[in-house]
């Protein structure tokens, strides 16, 4: 599961932010990290929902890193 989550997120980033390069699990997804804006984050949430049926952006705390997303599915 963890490998699949990481693969989906990395493929997404490679498509929308190719300049961000390889995403480490603790790299911030926004601002000075990967640099996703709100619409790109919204798109990532839809991609994850399509793939796994739920998405970590629906919770009270927004995921900040790939590690947060992996943790969400690990505990779901």
């Amino acid at each position: 599961m963890q490998d699949r989550v990481e693969q989906i997120v990395r493929e997404f980033v490679a498509r929308v932010k190719p300049e961000a390069g390889e995403v480490a699990v603790e790299t911030p997804l926004y601002a000075d990290g990967v640099g996703l804006d709100s619409l790109e984050a919204a798109e990532l949430s839809a991609v994850l929902e399509d793939e796994f049926g739920t998405d970590p952006f629906q919770g009270e705390t927004m995921p900040e890193t790939l590690s947060d997303i992996v943790s969400f599915y690990a505990t779901a």
Partner: peptide
Amino acid sequence: GRRNPMTGQIVA
């Protein structure tokens, strides 16, 4: 419009 927790809706 597809419901979305970040922006209310996204274009789908």
